[in-house]
């Protein structure tokens, strides 16, 4: 979208023009959804957060400084809305113990060939607190002090949660490498065809390799 087009839409939105609002919404939908998906537990939650964010955008558009990039402003609002959502759904979230992490080979993670959906699935599997802190630190680039202020937790908690989040992600990546293309799959069942034509009296049994061994 050209800058001129963007300004036209913004000025339309400032006049509460519904069509301009829809076009702006549509234009930044993917960008905003990308942020919210990282913080939310699922797509429904993500669209809920995103809409709350866009609501803030439309209601506070007069506060937007037109000399600064719009995308960054919108992105910050989406992150803040995600944090608000996290706070409003806050449970006793810092109690989870770190799983017994198996030894993971030193890998150069940045070289991993993982696509968007794989990564999103992994990050979604993290507990909400870990996910939020990992997002804020690793992707948004906030410092632990800033995160502590945002989430009302100590810097130490932020650090330890980030560490645990990374450990969990490493385990997930390692599992993903073992079984390429699947983030988490455990299936040991043999599947036997039950449509045997030759012998109609064939009895069907399900053999589990693990238990048989």
């Amino acid at each position: 979208m050209g800058e001129e087009e963007l300004y036209r839409l913004i000025s339309g939105c400032l006049k509460d023009d519904r069509l301009s609002q829809k076009l702006l919404y549509k234009a930044f939908y993917g960008f905003a959804m990308g942020i919210c998906l990282r913080y939310a537990a699922n797509r429904y939650e993500a669209s809920e957060i995103m809409n709350q964010g866009f609501y803030k955008v439309f209601k506070n558009l007069n506060k937007y400084d037109i000399t600064k990039p719009f995308k960054a402003w919108l992105g910050r609002i989406m992150v803040n809305t995600s944090i608000d959502y996290y706070r409003s759904n806050l449970k006793i979230a810092y109690t989870e113990e770190l799983d017994k992490a198996e030894h993971i080979n030193d890998t150069e993670y940045a070289d991993q060939n993982l696509n968007y959906n794989d990564l999103l699935e992994m990050i979604t599997k993290l507990p909400r607190a870990y996910r939020t802190i990992f997002n804020l630190f690793a992707i948004e680039g906030y410092t632990h002090e800033e995160i502590g202020d945002m989430l009302n937790i100590s810097t130490g908690t932020s650090k330890s949660n980030l560490h645990k989040a990374r450990e969990k992600l490493k385990v997930m990546i390692a599992e993903n490498n073992r079984i390429p293309g699947t983030v988490n799959k455990q299936s040991n069942d043999n599947i036997i065809s039950i449509t045997q034509q030759s012998n109609p009296n064939l009895s069907v049994s399900f053999v589990n390799n693990v238990t048989k061994q």
Binding site: G34, R38, Y109, A110, Q112, L114, N115, Y116, D118, L119, L120, I123, F134, F137, A138, I139, R166, L169, K170, I173
Partner: peptide
């Protein structure tokens, strides 16, 4: 690992 997610997402 941060970079991996930052770039990928």
């Amino acid at each position: 690992i941060d970079k991996l997610f930052s770039r990928g997402l």
